[in-house]
Design a protein around this nucleic acid. Sequence first.
DNA 1: GTCGTATTTAACATTCAGGTTAAATACAGC
DNA 2: GCTGTATTTAACCTGAATGTTAAATACGAC
Lengths: 128, 128
Amino acid sequence: MSNASPLDATFAALADPTRRAIVERLAQGDATVLELAAPFQISLPAISRHLKVLEHAGLISRGRDAQRRPCRLRAEALREVTQWTEHTRRAWEERFDRLGDYLRELQAREPITDTPKEEEEDHGDEQS
Amino acid sequence: MSNASPLDATFAALADPTRRAIVERLAQGDATVLELAAPFQISLPAISRHLKVLEHAGLISRGRDAQRRPCRLRAEALREVTQWTEHTRRAWEERFDRLGDYLRELQAREPITDTPKEEEEDHGDEQS
DNA sequence: GTCGTATTTAACATTCAGGTTAAATACAGC
DNA sequence: GCTGTATTTAACCTGAATGTTAAATACGAC
């Protein structure tokens, strides 16, 4: 049991709005802890821990500049998120397209006589 | 305060390996709760709650087929994840490219005389 | 060494996530 | 109405996440 994927940490890190805001800020360029903390009302230790979470998830790396620890976004980690998400989404859409082909093919073949009524039920929101 | 974005729920939902596995399974096609539960050792109520989380995050929709509640992946939600992630990543990479241009321009202009040593410190792992 | 600035660690409180079992609900078929 | 199957709700436990304040650490400048 107990699967553990690096994606666990990445998705979890991005689930927090403060951390996403930090990531967005870092997309504009490197920043120190104080700079990153400025827009928020929470305490510095809280920010420091958010940064540790981001670092542990591989989303940022940290440098050293005297007593400052500037943070830098790691685009790599973001790309991994996109890859999993898009891979999954495309699998679904391809399957959906195949289903569409099948249904269209069926409809073209014969105008339907007997519906055995197996599988495929209402989901309210249907793609055309 | 207290920001609340729909992305909070989506990222949080995908942070759990069981839920990601369910999503991957659903990318292959709709499935009932029992079918989704089969690969896991955890109890049915636990699965049921995972599904509620996924539904609340907009990642799945649910139909009705007699006493079954088949689940269907909502590709839409996945696309939103990709959008945020790629938007952020591209912002960073564009900025990085601009920085690269600037540095290359600087280097072409003069072979560097005096380094004022402001900004930009070591991050161990540097892009060339 | 002392001081001021930047950041982290420690100790603690509170809330939330994820799991369990037992009981309830929904529904088709007889 | 009773039964079997599918799924959810209720009540509960445990551990992890997030925030706080106070104290510690790291480092440049004097």
